[in-house]
Design a protein around this nucleic acid. Structure first.
Length: 585
RNA sequence: UAGGGUGUAGCCAAGUGGUAAGGCAACGGCCUUUGGAGCCGUGAUCGAAGGUUCGAGUCCUUCCGCCCUAACCA
C-alpha cells in the first residue's frame, strides 16, 4: 500500500500538471465514452530484455488504469518467431513484477488470437478487402512507390497496383487456405489488404497481413506456417481484449490510419490509439537492436551487465523500483523527442537510497595507518550511526585498533589548496573514532608510500572535540585486523558521449563506448559487519557512494559489491574544475 | 520528395489570449563528526519573420530546424 501511495499520482489532489494522455482520458470518461470503462495494456515484443524506456510506457499504462479505476493487461506481441523466445518472456515478466506492475490474471499473447485473426482475414477476403499476392518482397516495395534518390532530391513515385490485386474472391480464399496448409514456399506469397495504392501514407498502400514463414514459434510450435504482421495483429488484439486506450510510441503514428481501417472493416470494438514520445537517456542507448549488439559482440558481459540500461541490469546494479517510479513520474509524457539527462535518474536513486541505505565504512584502495601512541593489543568498539536520515535504523559497534586502513586518496604529502584531508602534521577526524595527527610517512625503496604514522588524542573518543577545536576533514577507516576482504566494481556511464549515436561520417557509435565504464577493485577492506551482507543488499559506503551486493557473482567467501551510484562529490567537482583550468593554460 | 510529428533556459517540462510553474544540472551562500544529506538564493520573452488584438508562448500567414515512415520487424 505504501508503495502505491509513493508511486502513483492522485489526480484529484495533486496540483501537478496533467499530461495530454490523461487529459484525453479524463475527457473521454467525462463524455461517457466506452460506458465509462477504462482498459489499458502494455504490449512488449519478447525479442530482448526490457529497459528503462520500456519502464516508462509500461508504468504509464499501469498507473493510468489504477488512477482511473480501470484495468491493465500484459500482452506479448509475439508475431515474429524469428526474433522471439521464451527466455525474453520470462525476463520481461520478472522485470515488470519487480517494478511493481500487476496485471492480475490478464497475461495474454497475440499468438492466442491467431485463429481469430485468420478467421477475420478470410472475412476480409470474402468482402473483397484482401487478396493473395505473388509479388516478391522487393517487388512489393517497388510497386508501393519506394523512395528514389535523384541527385540531391528524393522522389516518391506513386504506387502501382499489384497484378494480383484483382484476383477473384474464390481464388484468393483458395490460395490463402493453401498458404495456411503449407503448400507454398516461404516468402512466395502474402495476403495483402486491398486499400489504396495511391494513398499518401505508404502504410495504406495495400499492406501485408500475412507472410509465409516456416519457423517454430515459442508458443504455437509448428502449428502455423503463416504469421500475421504487426499491423494486422495489434489493433485486433486490442479490440479482442476490450482495450479502450491503446498507448504506443510515436513511430506508430503513421500506422494509426491503418489501425483504424482494419477495425472499421471488421466492425468490431474500436480502441483509440494514442502515441507518446519514446524516451532517450544520455550516455547510453535505448534500442533493443543496439543493446543486443552490445551483448552479442561482447562489449558488455550480458543483458544484465550492470552498465546496461536494462531493468535487469539496473536491478543488479542496485537501482530500486521506487527510484525508477520517481524518475518516470518526473520526466513527463509528451510527443516531443527528448534525451533525458541521466543525472536525473541518478538524482532519484540517491534520494531513495539516502533515506533507506544503511551506512557502513569500506576502504576501496587501502593505505595502512599506524596509531603509534595507541596500546598494541587494545580493541575498542565505537558506536556508529546506521542511518542519520532514519532514527529507527539504530547504531552498531565498529572495532578500532592500532593498525587501520584509510583511503589512499585521503592522504597527500603535498596537499593542494582546499584539500581538507590527512597530510603530514595535519589533524583529521576518523569518523566515530578519534582525531589523529600525521607524524610520519614511511616509504619503500621505490619511494612509494608504504604506511602512515599518526598519534591519536584520547580525549576525542567518538570523534568529539571537547575543547571545541575545529577539524575540517573526517575520514572513513577500518581496523586492519578486523576488516574483511571484498571486491568492488566501479561503474561509469557506458558511453562517454551524451548522445552516443551522434557520430561523424564514417564513425561508428561503438567508438563512443567509455573504456573506463567498469573498474574492478579486488583489494578492498570492509568493516566486519559486511560479512553478513546478503545478495542484493544495499549500503552506503560513507563518503564513497551506494553499493549493492552482486546477485550473480557473489558466490565465494569475499562479497562482491557493485557501485550503484556515487555520492555527490563536491571535492571531485572542484578537482575537475582545477584540471580544466590548468588544461586551458 | 510525399505523408505524419515536433520546436518554451544546458536537460526535461507546465502553460489552452491577460502579461513565462516546477524538477535536474550549473553557480553562490548557510549548516554539517559523510567535501553526503538538508536549507536559502541566482537564469528564459517562448525556432524566425510578419499579422490579428487594448493585450499572444497561446490565434492567423509564411519561413526555418529536427524526428519518424517509405520491411513479408515491432
Amino acid at each position: 500500500m505504501a508503495k502505491d501511495k509513493l508511486h502513483h499520482k492522485n489526480i484529484v489532489s495533486d496540483q501537478e500538471p496533467i499530461d495530454f494522455v490523461r487529459q484525453i482520458i479524463i475527457s473521454d470518461l467525462a463524455a461517457g465514452k466506452n460506458s465509462g470503462r477504462l482498459h489499458t495494456r502494455w504490449p512488449p515484443e519478447p525479442n530482448g530484455y526490457i529497459h528503462i524506456g520500456h519502464a516508462k510506457t509500461a508504468l504509464l499504462n499501469y498507473w493510468i488504469a489504477k488512477e482511473f479505476g480501470g484495468k491493465f493487461n500484459l500482452r506479448f506481441d509475439d508475431t515474429n518467431p524469428e526474433k522471439e523466445s521464451s527466455e525474453y518472456i520470462e525476463s520481461i515478466i520478472e522485470d515488470l513484477r519487480w517494478l511493481g506492475i500487476d496485471w492480475e490474471d490478464r497475461l495474454y499473447y497475440a499468438s492466442d488470437y491467431f485463429e481469430q485473426l485468420y478467421e477475420w482475414a478470410e472475412n476480409l477476403i470474402k468482402a473483397g478487402k484482401a487478396y493473395v499476392c505473388d509479388l516478391s518482397s522487393e517487388e512489393i516495395s517497388r510497386y508501393r512507390g519506394k523512395a528514389i534518390r535523384d541527385g540531391d532530391k528524393i522522389i516518391t513515385p506513386p504506387g502501382k497496383d499489384s497484378p494480383y490485386r484483382n484476383r477473384f474472391v474464390e481464388e484468393n480464399l483458395d490460395l490463402f487456405r493453401r498458404m495456411r496448409a503449407g503448400e507454398f514456399p516461404d516468402g512466395s506469397k502474402t495476403l495483402r489488404a486491398k486499400i489504396d495504392m495511391a494513398h499518401p501514407n505508404l502504410n495504406m498502400r495495400d499492406p501485408v497481413m500475412y507472410r509465409i514463414l516456416r519457423t517454430t514459434h515459442h508458443r504455437t510450435g509448428d502449428q502455423w506456417c503463416i504469421y500475421p504482421t504487426y499491423d494486422w495483429t495489434h489493433g485486433q488484439s486490442d479490440s479482442i481484449e476490450g482495450i479502450t486506450h491503446s498507448i504506443c510510441t510515436l513511430e506508430f503514428e503513421n500506422h494509426r490510419p491503418l489501425y483504424d481501417w482494419f477495425l472499421n472493416q471488421l466492425a468490431v470494438f474500436h480502441p483509440q490509439q494514442i502515441e507518446v514520445a519514446r524516451m532517450n537517456l544520455s550516455y547510453t542507448v535505448l534500442s533493443k537492436r543496439k543493446l543486443l549488439q552490445l551483448v552479442e559482440q561482447g562489449y558488455v558481459e550480458s543483458w544484465n551487465d550492470p552498465r546496461m540500461p536494462t531493468l535487469s541490469a539496473l536491478r543488479r546494479r542496485g537501482y530500486t523500483p521506487a527510484a525508477i517510479h520517481d524518475f518516470v513520474n518526473r520526466i513527463g509524457i509528451t510527443k516531443s523527442e527528448s534525451i533525458i539527462d541521466v543525472a536525473l535518474l541518478e538524482h532519484c536513486l540517491r534520494q531513495d537510497l539516502n533515506k533507506h541505505a544503511p551506512r557502513v565504512m569500506g576502504v576501496l584502495a587501502p593505505l595502512k595507518v599506524i596509531i603509534t601512541n595507541y596500546p598494541d593489543d587494545q580493541i575498542e568498539y565505537l558506536t556508529a550511526i546506521n542511518n542519520p536520515e532514519d532514527a529507527t535504523a539504530g547504531t552498531r559497534n565498529v572495532p578500532f585498533s592500532k593498525v587501520l586502513y584509510i583511503e589512499e586518496e585521503d592522504f597527500m604529502e603535498a596537499p593542494p589548496k582546499r584539500f581538507y584531508r590527512l597530510a603530514p602534521g595535519r589533524e583529521v577526524r576518523l569518523r566515530y573514532a578519534y582525531l589523529i595527527t600525521c607524524t610520519n610517512v614511511v616509504k619503500d625503496e621505490q619511494n612509494n608510500i608504504k604506511e602512515i604514522h599518526c598519534t591519536y588524542d584520547p580525549a576525542t573518543r567518538g570523534g568529539n572535540t571537547p575543547d571545541g577545536r575545529e577539524v575540517r576533514g573526517t575520514l572513513h577507516w577500518v581496523s586492519a585486523h578486523h576488516a574483511i576482504d571484498g571486491e568492488v566494481r566501479l561503474y561509469e556511464h557506458l558511453f562517454s558521449k551524451e548522445n552516443p549515436l551522434l557520430v561523424d561520417e564514417g564513425e561508428n557509435w561503438l567508438e563512443n563506448l567509455n573504456p573506463n565504464s567498469r573498474i574492478v577493485l579486488t583489494d578492498c577492506k570492509l568493516e566486519p559487519s559486511l560479512a553478513a551482507a546478503k545478495s542484493g543488499d544495499l549500503f552506503q559506503f560513507e563518503r564513497q557512494g551506494y553499493f549493492c551486493v552482486d546477485r550473480v557473482d557473489s558466490k565465494s567467501a569475499t562479497p562482491i559489491f557493485n557501485r550503484t551510484v556515487t555520492l555527490r562529490d563536491s571535492w571531485a567537482k572542484l578537482q575537475r574544475r582545477e584540471e580544466g583550468k590548468s588544461n586551458e593554460k
